[in-house]
């Protein structure tokens, strides 16, 4: 059948529209591409399999938390306590592992205890009607203080006789792929499915976009918010477990320090709206990797590592500024 020029125009317009919609839904792809090009220019070997899997491995521990932060930010909240949760859970996790000598029990403990800490945040925010910023600022101080007291300032060391068990699980490779990378990818896919394929995912978006409208469609807004905090708590717990395997010695004072900053940065770079309602797991996943790439680029460009924080701060501001521009 011969298409008239009008029909072709309409088709092209539809295609153009679909393309436009795709990129406005996935803005982080563009920044990722730009960054990849810069990285490759600096280091032509950058996009090899080894360096990519290293990148994934390095970004995993903070990236796992950023996945949870995505949910919390999309629902219109924020969680500043994740670093403290990592410290508290990992410190006690070492004790649990030394006592039980079981990887499974330790992992279960870490994720469950983490989600309980998150649940406490959620309860204060919803039932107590306190702003998430304040609640998690308070628990950020409280959670870390508990573990510093328990450890009396000293480190929590994994016993030598069980040490290899946890390090092989966390730092090992299967078919040449680092386990950390596998875990990160697995959790990212799981969270992506949760947000895109389930009703719960829709509720999170709805609550963040228009809480009153969400309430009036019969969504239990409080429950949705509490669950997002349980999820970020559980993911922080898993991150704590990975940290134990990675470091084998946890110092309560600085374990997980600034993790909240990196997690929020990854979400911001990933294109989520800080006011809630918009954002994607895929964006955060790439956002976490991009943060790691930036660190690599800074090293390659011989920028003093002390300026890392400055660069990260600027990047967060730029990412959000770009977001605001777009929504205007």
């Amino acid at each position: 059948m011969r298409l008239t020029s009008d029909a072709i125009m309409v088709q092209q317009k539809a295609k153009g529209e679909a393309l436009k919609r795709f990129f406005s839904n996935h803005p982080y792809l563009i920044s990722f591409a730009v960054l990849a090009v810069i990285a490759t220019i600096i280091n032509p070997d950058y996009l090899t399999y080894t360096s990519l899997s290293t990148l994934l491995k390095q970004s995993a521990i903070k990236g796992v938390i950023a996945l949870g932060m995505t949910l919390v930010i999309i629902s219109g909240n924020i969680d500043l306590s994740v670093g403290a949760i990592v410290a508290l859970v990992s410190g006690l996790g070492v004790v649990v592992f030394n006592t039980t000598e079981s990887i499974v029990v330790t992992l279960l403990f870490c994720s469950l205890f983490g989600s309980i800490l998150g649940w406490i945040n959620g309860m204060f925010i919803t039932k107590g009607r306190i702003a998430a910023f304040i609640v998690t600022l308070a628990t950020m101080s409280a959670y870390r203080s508990i573990i510093v007291q328990i450890g009396q300032g000293g480190p929590f060391n994994v016993d030598m006789n069980v040490l290899s068990a946890i390090t092989t699980v966390v730092n090992g490779r299967t078919l040449g792929v680092p386990h950390l990378a596998l875990i990160f990818v697995f959790l990212a896919v799981a969270m992506h499915l949760l947000m895109s394929q389930t009703k719960f995912g829709r509720y999170v978006y709805a609550v963040g976009s228009n809480e009153e409208a969400a309430r009036l469609t019969g969504i239990n807004v409080h429950r949705v918010k509490i669950i997002t905090f349980c999820i970020i708590g559980a993911l922080s717990g898993i991150s704590a477990f990975l940290l134990i395997g990675r470091l084998t010695s946890i110092t309560a004072v600085n374990a997980g320090i600034f993790f909240e900053l990196d997690a929020i940065a990854a979400v911001a770079i990933g294109g989520a709206a800080m006011s809630g309602g918009r954002g994607r797991i895929a964006g955060t996943f790439l956002g976490a990797i991009m943060l790691q790439m930036i660190e690599g680029i800074l090293i390659a460009a011989a920028i003093p590592p002390f300026l890392n924080g400055l660069v990260k701060g600027i990047i967060i501001l730029l990412a959000v500024l770009f977001q605001n521009k777009k929504s205007d």
């Binding site: 394929q197 389930t198 009703k199 709805a206 976009s209 009153e212 409208a213 469609t217 969504i219 309602g277």
Partner: peptide, 29 residues
């Protein structure tokens, strides 16, 4: 605008919202 529309969602998701929260126990969309 304030009490019905979920501005960051698609037309289709906006339409399905009440059915999501009130129909059946299925977890998935």
């Amino acid at each position: 605008k304030e009490r019905s529309i979920i501005p960051d969602m698609s037309i289709q998701d906006n339409l399905s919202m009440a059915s999501f929260s009130n129909n059946g126990n299925s977890l998935f969309v």
